[in-house]
Computed example of a mutant assay.
Amino acid sequence: MSTPATPPAQSEAALEREFIFLFEELADLFGNPRSLGTIYGLLFWSPIPLSMEEIVARLGVSKGTASQGLRQLEHLGAIRRTKEERSRTHTYQARMELKPLIAGFLQSRVIPRLTAGNERLAQMEDMVAQLPEPRKSEAQVRLQRITQWHKRGASVLPFVQRLLQGT
């Protein structure tokens, strides 16, 4: 059975806040809620797995925020959930490997957006075809350019996925 985490010493508390802040900023940079970074930062810093109740107490977030954040982090592959024998409480621990974080981000954010982008570009192509000249020609040039950008972005994805499989 897991023992409750004790509050960190004064110097450790300052360093813990810095870890949390760093991951809050990264979460925000990638379009995720800052609370996701807050939770991950605490788990990354913690030498032991923490329960949801410990996370709520240490961060001062609501149970709903903690629950939703833990689910998202687990979905991204950023944390592990464990349950010790004879215990009804789950604990959570940050995965420190970069590979599952990047792979989770690609699967949950990048690939769906690229797929949606393909659909939107097809719709735009139909819309451009209905424009009168000379606007139609100008719009086709712009659509071709953005389609090239989209294809270049999508062409990098398989390379990144192969890199992740090799590590």
Rank of each mutant, 00 (worst) to 15 (best):
K99R: 15
T82N: 02
R120A: 14
F30V: 15
L114A: 01
M96N: 03
P100M: 10
D126E: 14
S67N: 13
R95A: 00
E74P: 03
E97R: 11
M127Q: 14
Q93C: 03
P112C: 10
R95Q: 04
A66S: 12
Q72A: 02
A122H: 13
V61W: 02
H90W: 05
R71W: 04
S51D: 01
Q107S: 07
Q123W: 03
F105M: 11
R120Y: 10
A129E: 11
E53G: 15
A57N: 09
L36S: 02
T115Y: 06
T38I: 00
A57W: 00
E53P: 12
R71T: 09
M124T: 07
P132A: 09
G64T: 09
P132T: 00
R80K: 11
Q107H: 08
L42V: 05
R71L: 06
R113M: 14
L43H: 04
A129M: 08
E84A: 14
Y40G: 03
G41C: 03
E97F: 11
G117F: 02
A78K: 05
K99A: 13
L131H: 07
L29Q: 11
L36E: 11
Q130V: 01
E119T: 14
K99Y: 01
T38Q: 14
I102R: 05
E125I: 06
Q93T: 09
L73C: 03
V56P: 03
A27L: 00
K63N: 15
E97D: 06
E119L: 13
W45M: 07
Q130H: 15
G37F: 09
R109E: 00
M127A: 13
H75T: 13
R80S: 10
T115A: 07
T115G: 05
P49H: 12
G117R: 02
R34P: 05
R120G: 10
V110D: 04
S35E: 15
G117I: 00
I39P: 04
R86K: 15
Q123V: 00
I102S: 02
V128P: 07
H75K: 14
A27V: 02
T82A: 06
R120L: 15
S87L: 12
L36W: 10
M52W: 03
T115R: 14
M96L: 14
A78H: 04
R81H: 04
A57G: 04
R80T: 07
G69K: 02
L121N: 11
M52T: 10
N118C: 09
E125F: 12
R34I: 01
E84T: 00
V110R: 01
K63L: 02
F105E: 01
E53L: 12
L76W: 06
T89H: 06
Q130K: 15
L121G: 05
E97Q: 10
G104K: 07
T65R: 11
L36R: 12
K83A: 00
